[in-house]
């Protein structure tokens, strides 16, 4: 199986402080990876660096995505190449409707691939179908992006956007935080229905409960800026039972 994403020895500093200290990760199409770790371990930093956010200085290592040098690409180029970030704190953009943003995003990707703009009717069909999947009222489509949405609605909106944009690699940054149990189920169903042999997921999460609904192929424990343990989904259960401290202690000896 080919490699979709290969992170090698990645070192990243924020404000002069090194947060990632040599991180290795390989993701192949169809896989679901969960990245877990205590607060401050660098989980969100990884998500942000992969999506190209400003303010992160790469001090070493490399990231290859579909054979390309990911770190050399602008955020929008990464997005057009199929990389999607589900934000931990989705941003409000007043006055810009959800559908307008999505159509612009979708057309930007299509034109990057040399395809024509999506026709209005086809777009509407797609968007409505995805909204149903996420159990979102159609009125949400016309509302300003995340404008006045509750925390749970924002997270659902992220997965809805993912469903419309159909990424190759989706990085979901703490998508489960702030969700009640019903919303968690809806979000998980959304992710599961998008699982596909050609599509990979990186789930960044602090808690194991998301993994009750989305079963990962790999679980990585991130601590001190690197992955200190990798296992299958049972590792998450072990973490849940014993807490991070024990694993950290075990790793440091």
């Amino acid at each position: 199986m080919s490699t979709l994403l290969e992170v090698s020895g990645l070192r990243v500093a924020v404000g002069g402080k090194e947060i990632l200290t040599g991180l290795d990760l390989v993701v192949r199409p169809g896989e679901v990876h969960a990245i877990m770790g205590p607060n401050g371990s660098g989980k969100s930093t990884l998500a942000h660096v992969l999506s190209g956010r400003d303010g992160y200085v790469v001090t070493g290592g490399s990231v290859s995505y579909q054979g390309l040098d990911l770190l050399a690409m602008a955020p929008e180029e990464r997005a057009r190449a199929g990389l999607f970030l589900g934000f931990q704190y989705p941003v409000e953009i007043p006055g810009v409707s959800n559908v307008y943003l999505l159509r612009s995003a979708l057309n930007a990707r299509r034109s990057a691939r040399g395809e024509s703009e999506i026709d209005a009717a086809g777009f509407l069909r797609l968007v409505k179908a995805r909204a149903r999947l996420m159990q979102m009222d159609e009125s949400f489509l016309q509302r300003g992006v995340n404008e006045g949405f509750s925390g749970g609605e924002k997270k659902r909106n992220e997965i809805f956007q993912m469903a419309v944009l159909e990424p190759v690699l989706a990085i979901l940054d703490e998508t489960d935080s702030g969700l009640d149990i019903d919303a968690l189920k809806i979000v998980s169903n959304g992710v599961n229905s998008l699982r596909d042999p050609a599509r990979a997921f990186i789930l960044v999460t602090h808690y194991q409960r998301l993994l009750d609904y989305i079963r990962p192929d790999f679980v990585h424990v991130l601590a001190g800026g690197r992955i200190i343990r990798t296992g299958d989904h049972t590792l998450a259960l072990e973490l849940e039972a014993d807490g991070y401290e024990q694993i950290l202690a075990a790793a440091s000896t």
Binding site: D54, E76, L85, P90, V91, I93, L101, A105, R109
Partner: peptide, 14 residues
């Protein structure tokens, strides 16, 4: 907002 700009760019918009 930088965060608004980044959000749009992450969705593929220049």
């Amino acid at each position: 907002g930088d965060d608004q700009l980044f959000y749009c760019r992450q969705r593929g918009i220049s």
